[in-house]
Design a protein around this nucleic acid. Structure first.
Length: 275
DNA sequence: CTTGCCCCCTGCACGC
DNA sequence: TGCGTGCAGGGGGCAA
């Protein structure tokens, strides 16, 4: 998936295109995503409703409507959300089309090859804060701090990479950026969480903000499936310094980058400068 | 409570 | 060429 930066890029791209617009016709593929597509709720709440806000929470994209309902999208591993001319033939794995009322030549499409994504409708009686209650703080906001991480991780022995990828701890850090952040902070992904020092937590916080901010500025880093809100490939890729570079020399110290499996996910680290 | 394991699904690169 | 295998950016359920 798209990790936080990619979702943020989609969010910023879609916001000006959707604000003030209304949806009319709604079509679904009939396929279930990670959750079934709530077709009835979409027809009831999204049809003829105007978009008043487009924002991101973690890796979720929230489209708020003027009837107080919200559409909550998660892109999973291969999800894409973009505006396309309505005349564009349906692509394989297009699962939802929302036609824009006041510009019927265009429609919002959700495409997801692997169907690990999700689409949910939050009705006006459902509290969004409650819906996202299990999510940790945003890494680009103040609540995410060295003190917070030290407190949260003080009694955990799991590898620090797994800790950073736990959305209950902090949202938005996925498999690519977890490796990149720990490389920047010179800390091994394998380090037990309760053996990270206060100074190192500070470094992790600093590097998390730095890496994510740079990735957003670069337009999201793309491997294969991310397409920006306009439907064009995200050409502007943040240079990844460890992810996918196993067998190559570290760009910082020249030692070897190695690849290991951690919690079932590929993990990259430099043997020389990460301890 | 924490932690690792397995699963959901499709497509692609690779080796034989 | 064709087929089998492993792997891919997420995350939730489950059992130990």
């Amino acid at each position: 998936m798209p990790e936080l930066p990619e979702v943020e890029v989609v969010c910023r791209g879609l916001r000006p295109l959707l604000m003030g617009r209304s949806f009319s016709q709604i079509r679904t593929s009939g396929h279930s995503l990670r959750l079934p597509i709530p077709e009835d709720a979409l027809k009831r709440w999204a049809a003829d409703a105007m978009v008043v806000e487009v924002r991101r929470r973690g890796k979720y994209l929230v489209v708020v409507l003027d009837n107080q309902a919200s559409l909550v999208f998660h892109l999973g591993m291969t999800g894409r959300l973009g505006l396309f001319p309505a005349a564009t033939p349906l692509a394989a794995h297009d699962h939802l089309c929302l036609v824009l009322t006041d510009n019927e030549r265009m429609e919002l499409r959700f495409n997801d090859t692997r169907r690990f994504g999700s689409i949910q409708v939050l009705t006006p009686d459902q509290d969004e804060a409650l819906h996202f209650a299990a999510l940790g703080p945003e890494p680009l906001q103040g609540e995410f701090s060295a003190d917070y991480l030290a407190d949260k991780g003080g009694r955990r022995s799991q590898p620090v990479k797994n800790f950073l990828m736990d959305s209950r701890v902090v949202v938005g850090i996925g498999n690519i950026y977890a490796s990149e952040i720990l490389h920047e902070a010179r800390i091994s992904p394998l380090r037990p969480t309760n053996q990270v020092s206060a100074l190192e937590w500070k470094s992790i916080v600093t590097q998390t903000r730095s890496v994510l901010t740079r990735a957003i500025a670069a337009g999201g880093s793309t491997i294969a499936d991310f397409v920006n809100a306009g439907g064009k490939p995200g050409y502007f890729q943040l240079e990844l310094k460890v992810y996918g570079r196993h067998g190559k020399p570290c760009l910082r110290c020249g030692a070897m980058i190695v690849k290991e499996t951690l919690a079932g996910r590929s993990t990259y680290r430099c043997e020389g400068c990460q301890r």
